[in-house]
Amino acid sequence: MTTCTLDLYTDYLLSSTGPTTATGLSRLLDGEMSHDHITRWLSSADWSLAEVWRHAKPLIRQAEAQRPPTDFAVLVVDDSILEKAHTDANELICTHWDHSQQRYVKGLNFVSLLY
Rank of each mutant, 00 (worst) to 15 (best):
V77R: 08
T70H: 15
A50R: 12
E91T: 15
M33S: 02
C4G: 01
T21E: 08
G31Y: 01
G107S: 11
T21D: 08
D79Q: 13
S34N: 07
D78G: 03
R103N: 12
S112R: 15
Q102D: 15
S80R: 08
G18C: 10
L114D: 13
S80C: 11
T39R: 09
H35Q: 14
E83F: 05
S100K: 13
L75M: 12
N109Q: 15
C4Y: 04
E64R: 15
Q102V: 05
A65Y: 08
I81A: 02
D11M: 04
G24C: 11
S112E: 13
E91L: 09
P19S: 11
A73D: 06
D71A: 12
D78F: 01
V77Q: 10
A85L: 12
D71I: 03
L14I: 04
Y12N: 02
C4H: 02
P69F: 08
A22E: 01
E83H: 11
R61D: 11
A50Q: 12
E64L: 13
Q62M: 09
A56D: 00
A85F: 13
S112T: 14
R27Q: 15
T39P: 01
S48D: 07
L82H: 13
M1R: 13
S112A: 14
K57V: 01
H96Y: 13
V77M: 11
M1Q: 10
